[in-house]
């Protein structure tokens, strides 16, 4: 049953992305200043938001794991972090492609770019820590602590970087600016793609959790086999 729901949600996410791509590529007009390249923004901001949700979810699940010691939270934390890392990579890469087109450079040490890269490295460290610890309960415990630290560090990095002059474009959404600086059709499209990415995130996290569950089942079977033999 669970597999069927995951599969159904995956199909729905795929269809939704096709619908969004159709609107983005064929229906929306070019942007007044940037021309065609602005379309990459629909694949730049939504994965970023989805990644933030993943990391927040991982931090909360890690706290819950430390409190309850239930495996399920650890499984969720590692799955969400891995998916979040992939989404953050999409955010970085699409941003770089846009920067190359608009600024003429792939990368600049702007506040937000730097923070995003640091965030990515911190969570990469999380996965490396998991790789390095053999004992499952110690791995779960230590990586849970790291995940909580990482979330604080990421927040702190964003705050500390804010005082550097920034080259990154400011907020465009109406809820952030309070003005109508963005075309309503483009804003609607952004929310559509955000929803599509969130759905994709849920599917990927669910698939990854399933994988982690089977991996642990195999591990425990192997341990039992060793104990008997």
């Amino acid at each position: 049953m669970r597999d069927k729901i995951i599969f159904g949600a995956g199909i729905f996410a795929a269809l939704y992305f096709i619908r969004n791509l159709y609107v983005i590529l064929l229906q929306l007009p070019d942007e007044a200043m940037q021309g065609a390249v602005y379309r990459i923004f629909f694949f730049h901001l939504p994965p970023y938001f989805a990644a933030v949700f993943c990391f927040l979810g991982a931090a909360i699940a890690s706290g819950m794991y430390l409190k309850t010691k239930r495996w399920h939270y650890d499984v969720f934390a590692v799955s969400a972090t891995e998916v979040g890392l992939a989404l953050a990579a999409i955010n970085l890469v699409t941003g770089m492609i846009w920067g190359r087109q608009q600024w003429g450079i792939w990368w600049t040490w702007d506040a937000r770019l730097t923070s995003a890269l640091i965030t990515w490295l911190i969570y990469l460290g999380y996965l490396m820590l998991r790789e390095g610890i053999k004992d499952p309960s110690e791995r779960a415990k230590n990586s849970a602590v790291l995940s909580i630290f990482a979330f604080f560090a990421v927040y702190f990095t964003y705050k500390a970087n804010e005082w550097y002059r920034t080259q990154h474009p400011g907020p465009v959404l109406t809820i952030r600016t309070g003005k109508n600086t963005i075309d309503p059709a483009m804003q609607a499209m952004l929310f559509h793609n955000l929803f599509a990415f969130l759905l994709l995130t849920v599917v990927l996290v669910a698939v990854r959790m399933r994988l982690e569950d089977s991996q642990r089942a195999v591990e425990s079977l192997r341990r039992r086999a060793h104990a008997v033999a």
């Binding site: 640091i118 490295l121 911190i122 460290g125 820590l129 500390a160």
Partner: peptide
């Protein structure tokens, strides 16, 4: 190897 890999990014601020 792990210690610097973990603490440098967090220490950046």
């Amino acid at each position: 190897l792990m210690l610097p890999m973990l603490i440098y990014p967090m220490l950046i601020p």
